[in-house]
Design a protein around this nucleic acid. Structure first.
Length: 232
DNA sequence: ACCCAGGTGTTTC
DNA sequence: GAAACACATGGG
């Protein structure tokens, strides 16, 4: 068995089924993916709850909602100057393509669907692939910051490029939708619950096969960023 | 009072 | 083209 699958088995045994993506509908999943960027899941949940509470969680209702209303509802997800518009434009796109029929929207040819998603503002490679995997049921491996950091740290690969990392997992991962969905979820759980803050390598399920010393230079922590708040 | 989050788009070497 | 920045709320 290859190391990528060893990692999967260890994580799966340790964490158990994740049941990802947590959402009650495909559209809710897509909304979550759009709001997710550079924000904690807790804040995304708040935004989604606000939308649900106002019964604004369908392509048509969001497409027709006022930008001010939308901004107020999704504010907890941060980046409020861009996310509300992106969310509305995304919804408008679904409405214009399929009249708001989410299943029909997701049913088209995966390659075309991916390109279409990528053409929308605010949808990059990770968001597009998340929607493909968790909403459209397309078997693609999601590459996020955790996947790169942990993959390098554990010693699966030493590159950083999105397409290359994705190709690596496509080649190494044996399994269907279930495994693809779980693998990504398990990486995120590992990053959040074991590696974050002070890494808890003593209780890490990957301790036996992780060569931290060798890959330490790659590091778990991304380069510092200066996120200065904009005073109003 | 920092630092960061399941990125993305824009600007700059 | 890679690298660096801006973006903004809430939690640690």
């Amino acid at each position: 068995m290859n190391k990528a699958m060893q990692v999967y088995d260890l994580l799966s045994d340790y964490f158990g089924p994740t049941g990802w993506w947590p959402a009650e509908s495909k559209f809710e999943m897509m909304v979550g993916a759009l709001l997710m960027s550079q924000t904690s899941w807790r804040n995304v949940e708040r935004a989604i709850q606000n939308l649900k509470g106002r019964n604004v969680l369908s392509p048509v209702s969001i497409a027709n909602a006022g930008l001010e209303t939308l901004t107020r509802l999704v504010r907890p997800a941060g980046l409020y100057r861009s996310k509300p518009r992106r969310l509305r434009d995304f919804s408008k796109h679904v409405v214009s393509e399929t009249g708001g029929d989410v299943d029909a929207f997701l049913r088209r040819e995966p390659r075309a669907l991916r390109d279409e998603l990528l053409s929308l503002d605010g949808v990059g490679a990770e968001t597009a692939d998340s929607i493909l995997l968790y909403a459209a049921g397309v078997k693609v491996f999601i590459v996020d910051a955790y996947t790169r950091r942990i993959g390098k740290r554990v010693g699966l690969f030493d590159f950083d490029n999105y397409a290359k990392v994705q190709a690596f997992f496509r080649k190494m991962v044996v399994g269907g939708m279930r495994v693809y969905r779980e693998y990504h979820a398990l990486i995120v759980k590992l990053a959040k619950e074991i590696c974050r803050l002070r890494p808890r390598c003593d209780v890490c399920p990957l301790a036996g096969i992780c060569d931290f010393a060798k890959t330490e230079k790659a590091g778990m922590r991304p380069p510092k960023k200066s996120a200065r708040p904009l005073r109003t």
